[in-house]
């Protein structure tokens, strides 16, 4: 390792999964930099990705708020009907020790995806507009990344499908507007995650802060 002493650190990129080091060469738009050893995608820039993510995040935020308050599913059996919103579903575990579970569920399907959407907008808006990063943008993006595995809107959607099949034997189920909003939301959340090139975001946050 003596001959590699004066390595300019900025010209290196290291795979976070397997620690392989590479000389950094920025891929062009549409190209992707992939770790040759373990296949992790290191850089995947996209044209106008920033703007697209902001647009998608905005849509996600609006949809979450709308879907949370409007009726989600309505059930009908023998003249009795019951209509719930997503928030009701999340708070179903509300008695006794299950209250903690209710709050966790609400966080996983509503608050975490909402927070992530708002954080993405906060971080990316100044970058897209070529302004210096917003105050605390680093921390905001860090939080957003830390929350990523805990955002479970798409899993809730599959859970809906399973629950509905179980219930349809028992009673008639009708879909409220929130159901369709939530379906759209799930697609957008997946897009939002796959568009973000984390390396590009970190690099632009870094560059703008130094100058």
């Amino acid at each position: 390792m003596t001959d590699t002493q004066p390595i300019p650190l900025d010209t290196l990129i290291v795979c976070p999964h397997c620690d392989a080091a590479y000389k950094l060469r920025r891929p062009g738009v549409g190209e992707r930099a992939k770790c040759q050893r373990c296949g992790t995608i290191l850089i995947s820039p996209r044209r106008k990705a920033g703007l697209q993510i902001i647009a998608v995040s905005l849509a996600v935020a609006i949809l979450i708020i709308a879907a949370t308050v409007s009726p989600f599913l309505t059930i009908n059996a023998g003249g009795v009907s019951n209509s719930v919103s997503i928030l009701d579903a999340a708070l179903a575990f509300s008695d006794g020790p299950l209250l903690a579970l209710a709050l966790t569920t609400a966080a996983l399907i509503i608050f975490v995806p909402l927070t992530r959407a708002l954080l993405s907008i906060y971080v990316l808006l100044p970058i897209v507009m070529d302004r210096p990063p917003a105050r605390g943008a680093m921390q905001a993006f860090r939080l957003s990344e830390a929350l990523r595995p805990w955002s479970m809107a798409e899993i809730f959607a599959i859970g809906c499908a399973v629950a509905l099949t179980k219930i349809t034997d028992l009673a008639d189920v009708a879909f409220g507007p929130a159901f369709w909003m939530f379906a759209a939301l799930v697609i957008l959340v997946v897009i939002q995650d796959n568009f973000v090139c984390r390396w590009s975001v970190w690099t632009s946050l870094d560059k703008t802060q130094k100058s």
């Binding site: 059930i75 019951n82 569920t105 809906c160 629950a163 219930i167 009673a171």
Partner: peptide, 27 residues
């Protein structure tokens, strides 16, 4: 993360199926 699905199923069912005397599902 996908294992959480069962929790969500329980959440949806127990909030939805609350039909007074007829039927009720609780977690």
């Amino acid at each position: 993360r996908w294992s959480m699905i069962d929790i969500f199923v329980v959440a949806i069912m127990s909030s939805l199926v609350q039909l007074n005397t007829l039927a009720a599902i609780n977690p």
